[in-house]
Design a protein around this nucleic acid. Structure first.
Length: 270
DNA sequence: CGCACCCCCTGCCGGC
DNA sequence: TGCCGGCAGGGGGTGC
């Protein structure tokens, strides 16, 4: 579920509230996430003072006062929610942190595809690979043009590859390619400089607007305070197969590209 | 190298 | 109404 705008929304909300807090207690109710929590996870996080949480791609990274970094990845259905003292535990509440201000930070994840970890100092760069964050200034049209040369893969696969561009997921790739007027299956190596410019501009625009709307709540996404986003109301193509294109009126097409459902307008995108 | 296909897991929805 | 197959915003592994 959560892509860059959703993770960014959570981080913007939680970072000020968590900065400087001390983790008084860590309760692991279910360690079997996609990667089973290390047996010492609770002791490595317990007692630590939290620094300023930040986002890198779809990861949430919080520095600890011992130099390590607390890492959270929400997978498809993860939620990180800050609430008052001792809220009633809900089904799929896997990890519960009690803070020194008596508030409670809960990791809930029905499908358990998420990841929680405490990283050693210096391990952070490795978690996202050599690519750049989708909102990093370094991701320019020139960078994308250079990176896409000699790639036999589709532009969608290139943009979805977290080692290349970190943060984009299935919703926002369809949305940004519609705005850029580029078909998802176009060979990356055949993108023109002008198309790379349009893709980068569309990427920044759609991500910025989505963040402004608090992300997309398709079914279960909520921010760090359990509030839904509203950008799903602005989707132009995602999950709209057969419905009229909002620009030309023609039917939106739904296909599968690199194993993921993909939506585009055959008339508006080339 | 790129991709099809498999897995991880629960929940929801549509069809019958 | 109830069951079942298919699919879901992510990511990792294998084998062709």
């Amino acid at each position: 579920m959560p892509e860059l705008p959703e993770v960014e929304t959570i981080v913007r909300g939680l970072a000020p509230a968590l900065d400087g807090r001390i983790v008084r207690e860590v309760v692991v109710r279910e360690p079997r996430l996609r990667v089973t929590l290390a047996s010492d996870f609770a002791t490595r996080l317990g007692g630590r003072r939290l620094g300023t949480m930040r986002r890198l791609g779809k990861y949430m990274l919080t520095p600890l006062d011992d130099g390590r970094v607390w890492l959270v990845h929400l997978g498809m259905t993860g939620r990180l929610t800050l609430a008052g003292a001792r809220p009633l535990p809900l089904v799929h509440d896997h990890v519960v942190l009690r803070l020194d201000d008596q508030r409670t930070l809960t990791y809930n994840d029905p499908r358990r595809f998420g990841r929680l970890d405490v990283l050693e100092p210096g391990a952070v760069p490795g978690v996202v690979g050599p690519g750049v964050d989708a909102l990093d200034d370094a991701l320019s049209a020139a960078w994308l043009f250079a990176r896409s040369r000699k790639r036999r893969t589709s532009v969608k696969a290139l943009l979805m590859d977290q080692r290349q561009v970190a943060g984009l997921g299935n919703i926002y790739v369809s949305e940004l390619l519609f705005r850029a007027g580029v078909r998802p299956r176009r060979r990356a190596a055949l993108l023109t400089r002008d198309e790379c410019t349009r893709i980068v501009e569309a990427m920044r625009a759609v991500l910025g607007e989505a963040i402004g709307r608090g992300g997309s709540s398709i079914s279960d996404y909520r921010d760090g305070f359990d509030q839904a986003g509203s950008f799903q109301d602005e989707h132009l193509v995602y999950d709209r197969a057969g419905e009229p294109c909002r620009r030309c009126g023609g039917p939106i097409k739904g296909v599968v590209v690199v194993g993921r459902s993909t939506f585009y307008c055959p008339r508006c995108q080339r």
